[in-house]
């Protein structure tokens, strides 16, 4: 069994400027933000994103001025509003975009994972998602089914350079498990040329084998494993901790103004030397208040009052 455990600094150093990245996470959950903060700390720039709905990643990187272009379907902070940093980057012409539907962009990843050059799909036809093009040389082509003549669109396979996925637990070889819904993690892992897993905890492989139905990634799909407890903070992790809503509201308020957001980055990303310094700054009391109820998998309903 290979030992793929690496440090956060080491794996981020291996990601070149200009890389095409895809990130795990959905809405306010399981987003690999410890790694994203390290990307910003290490000064990675000119990044490209192949995204579905990784709103927190996109908005952090946009606010730090680190993304050049993004193919995606939706960035929205549920309960807060549209992603201010990302929207501003696009409105100012600093970030190039290519819009897809959820199913279309995910199908591009699925095609890559299946080892086929394209897949036929039904949505997007007849709309500006087809007519109004961004930076993509090939986005989708209308096609008539060779058997029935039924109109479909063909979308080409998409192969990001690196997938960065945050999971609940992984063994040292990279077998990775998630509780709860899985969003696009499995499709992203099979599409990407390299897969970095960040995990709440590194466990013995006997723990994985005791509940194999939770495994989203078998080890051969995974190139590196990084242990980062609370690595999704301020987003939540099912069965570990809830999203930190107060932190998110503060972030969102700061993101409305570039100077205020610069201060947020200085305080929470560039200031702390590493992930442990970041967690110390958030504080033990607040982190513990976010812990999940073992029965529910989320913090107790009606008692979400983390300070």
């Amino acid at each position: 069994m290979a030992d793929k455990v690496r440090s956060l600094q080491e794996v981020v150093a291996s990601i070149p400027d200009g890389a095409n990245l895809t990130f795990g996470g959905f809405a306010a959950y399981f987003t690999p933000l410890a790694l994203v903060r390290e990307l910003i700390r290490q000064g990675k720039r000119e990044l490209e994103m192949t995204s579905v709905a990784e709103c927190w990643v996109a908005d952090y990187l946009a606010g730090a001025g680190r993304i050049r272009r993004v193919r995606f379907s939706n960035f929205m902070f549920e309960g807060l509003g549209r992603c201010q940093n990302f929207a501003r980057g696009v409105e100012r012409g600093e970030i190039e975009v290519e819009d897809y539907s959820h199913f279309a962009i995910t199908s591009r990843l699925v095609a890559a994972g299946l080892g086929v050059p394209f897949l036929p799909i039904k949505p997007m036809a007849g709309t500006d998602l087809m007519r109004t093009r961004g930076f993509e040389a090939e986005k989708a082509r209308p096609f008539a089914c060779p058997f029935t003549g039924e109109p479909v669109l063909l979308v080409p396979a998409a192969r990001p350079d690196v997938a960065v996925l945050h999971v609940a637990r992984a063994d040292r070889d990279g077998n990775s498990q998630l509780f709860g819904y899985t969003a696009v993690v499995e499709e992203q892992a099979r599409a990407a040329q390299r897969v970095i897993v960040t995990t709440e905890e590194v466990v013995e492989d006997t723990v994985i084998r005791a509940q194999p139905e939770l495994t989203v990634l078998p080890s051969f799909l995974v190139d590196a494993v990084v242990e980062v407890p609370f690595g999704a903070h301020p987003t939540g992790m099912y069965r570990y901790y809830d999203p930190h809503f107060e932190f998110m509201r503060d972030y969102y308020a700061a993101s409305r103004d570039p100077a205020a957001f610069r201060a947020h980055l200085e305080e929470w990303v560039l200031g702390p030397a590493d992930h442990w310094a970041y967690l110390r700054k958030v504080g033990l009391r607040r982190l513990l208040a976010l812990r999940s109820d073992p029965g529910l998998g989320i913090a107790r309903m009606h008692a979400r009052t983390a300070t």
């Binding site: 929207a87 897809y100 998602l129």
Partner: peptide
């Protein structure tokens, strides 16, 4: 009954960049 949840103004240099389709186009199409 066509919907816009992508942008107001020019697509590449919008006045307001909205969240994007997400599953909306898939729902409306299917």
């Amino acid at each position: 009954g066509n919907l816009n949840s992508t942008s107001i103004g020019d697509y590449q240099r919008p006045t307001v960049r909205l969240p994007g389709s997400g599953g909306a186009n898939d729902i409306g199409s299917l």
